[in-house]
């Protein structure tokens, strides 16, 4: 390694650049400089690869600079939905956001997703979010005897709800919604997406129970069509459209 340090860049070598990460932190127990539960910003200067994602930068901090930094991640490949955070004021998955796409010349801000109680640093309490999801009963509801084999459906019937099957429950949409920020009682876009996935599934028979739940005063009618959810979804789900389809079903009585 030392022998090649002065040599011109290797073919195929990855470029590096300097980047500043501004992370919003909070420690419920407090530390030397900050009281319990106090929110503060901390800057980290890092040398990152041109191929690095925000998650790699957070790993670099946690593993090499400050082991007390807390954040969630699991798959690191945009599948599990555990690392949604507010990066440069937009909700995204840290594992699916390249640093070079964020203008690394300026400090990159990383905050916890908004509207849910912060437990520590970038970790929020997801329970209110999951509670809404549970309330719309996200499981197949049927009557009659269980068939011997799979419940088949036509490709057209499947297409009807294909988009909303992509949800990974990362909460990026719900915590991007201005109505959810001001009124935490609102079910939020994700619960409506989760309900849409079953309401428009030809094999499911619980659609009217779910629609009735979403007809609540904390339900779909709280949506003001802000489109923040659609913009935030890392899976590209057309969230606002799904919400409109649920409203339409309630207004026309047709699923």
């Amino acid at each position: 390694m030392t022998a090649t340090a002065e040599a011109p860049a290797e073919i195929g070598a990855v470029e590096t650049f300097e980047v500043t990460l501004r992370v919003k932190r909070q420690n419920p127990e407090g530390n030397d400089a900050h009281g319990p539960g106090e929110e503060y910003w901390e800057e980290f200067q890092l040398t990152c690869l041109a191929t690095d994602r925000v998650l790699d930068a957070l790993h670099q901090i946690k593993w090499n600079v400050d082991g007390t930094l807390n954040f969630r991640r699991s798959c690191a490949h945009g599948v599990c939905g555990s690392d949604a955070m507010r990066i440069n004021a937009k909700n995204r998955l840290a594992c699916s956001t390249l640093l070079k796409d964020l203008n690394p010349a300026r400090p990159i801000t990383v905050e916890p997703i908004a509207g849910l109680p912060v437990l520590k640093d970038l970790i929020v309490d997801m329970e209110p979010f999951f509670a809404s999801y549970r309330e719309i009963m996200p499981f197949l509801m049927t009557t009659g005897p269980t068939p011997e084999r799979e419940r088949l459906q036509s490709p057209e019937d499947r297409e009807r709800f294909d988009d909303t099957t992509k949800c990974i429950l990362c909460a990026a949409c719900t915590t991007a919604c201005p109505v959810f920020w001001t009124d935490g009682q609102y079910f939020g876009p994700q619960a409506i997406v989760g309900a849409h996935r079953f309401i428009f599934d030809s094999r499911d028979e619980g659609q009217w129970e779910r629609l009735e739940i979403l007809n609540d005063r904390a339900g779909v009618w709280k949506c003001r069509t802000a489109f923040n959810c659609t913009e935030a979804c890392p899976r590209g789900i057309e969230v606002t459209k799904a919400i409109s389809e649920v409203k339409h079903a309630l207004n026309t009585g047709e699923v």
Partner: peptide, 15 residues
């Protein structure tokens, strides 16, 4: 669950 939505309304008012 620790979080339970307060008062359900089953009316059509919001619609």
């Amino acid at each position: 669950p620790a979080f339970v939505r307060s008062g359900r309304s089953r009316t059509q008012v919001e619609r």
